[in-house]
């Protein structure tokens, strides 16, 4: 049984002129436990919508997201929130760190909604990512690369079974982009977590070697180009 499976997942949005526009149409998509998948897609191709539906942040208009045999879209909201906190890590393109929290607090905060705060593990993760002397710094006091690493630590803090990475190197200096990606992949491997990484950065895609083309995955793109 795959860890994650998408079955005929479609998502439409209502346009300003009142018409429903199909943004996402994925007939089938599967990820096995521990598998690392890269998806290549251009900006505005619906990749973020795709990840948000997997994360349960957005409900599909039709179809099913199945997690380890359970239909995610069929879960109640509270159960889905708990599932997300426990099973998923999400690395956002803009990191989405909380400005009022220190690096360590940003990492432990996510743990509170999952298995519970584990400062020692959060600290070890940040140390592993080279932020031992930045634990009490707030995001504004960190470089972009350091913020990215805090975001990686947060995504991995709950030992999730799947990590979603949305353009994880999009905001990084090219020098650090591959380093960050390497760390993400390495930590996922160590924790046995599957990884879905969507990107349009050729260096990222080359690093994976066998990236899926989102234009092929998402049939809606074949019909009409849409914004995400």
């Amino acid at each position: 049984m795959p860890l994650l499976e998408l079955r005929d997942v479609r998502r439409a949005f209502r346009s300003p002129d009142g018409e429903d526009q199909l943004i996402l149409d994925v007939p089938s998509f599967e990820v096995e436990g521990g598998q690392q998948v890269a998806i290549a897609g251009t900006s505005g191709s619906g990749k973020t919508t795709f990840l948000n539906i997997i994360a349960g942040l957005l409900a599909p208009t039709s179809g099913e997201v199945v997690w380890d045999g359970d239909v995610v879209s069929g879960m109640g909201e509270a159960k889905r929130d708990a599932w997300r906190a426990r099973e998923l890590g999400y690395v956002f393109q803009t990191f989405n760190l909380l400005g009022g929290y220190t690096a360590l607090e940003n990492v432990t905060l996510g743990m509170m909604f999952g298995p519970g705060p584990d400062r020692a593990f959060a600290t070890s993760l940040l140390e592993r990512l080279g932020l031992a002397d930045r634990l009490r710094h707030r995001p504004a006091q960190l470089s972009i690369g350091q913020q990215q690493r805090v975001a990686l630590a947060r995504a991995l803090a709950n030992r999730p079974r799947l990590v979603l990475a949305d353009e994880p190197t999009g905001n990084l200096d090219p020098r650090f982009a591959l380093e960050a990606l390497g760390l993400l992949r390495e930590l996922c491997r160590e924790q046995g977590a599957a990884l879905i990484c969507v990107s349009h950065d050729p260096r990222v895609l080359d690093d994976f070697g066998d990236a899926l083309d989102f234009a092929v995955l998402n049939r809606a793109m074949a019909e009409e180009p849409q914004g995400s």
Binding site: A85, N96, G100, L109, G114
Partner: peptide
């Protein structure tokens, strides 16, 4: 609002 959205994305319930 963004802060709340992040909390929700991290698994915080609406009630939380």
């Amino acid at each position: 609002r963004r802060e709340f959205a992040i909390l929700r994305a991290l698994g915080a319930r609406k009630q939380t």
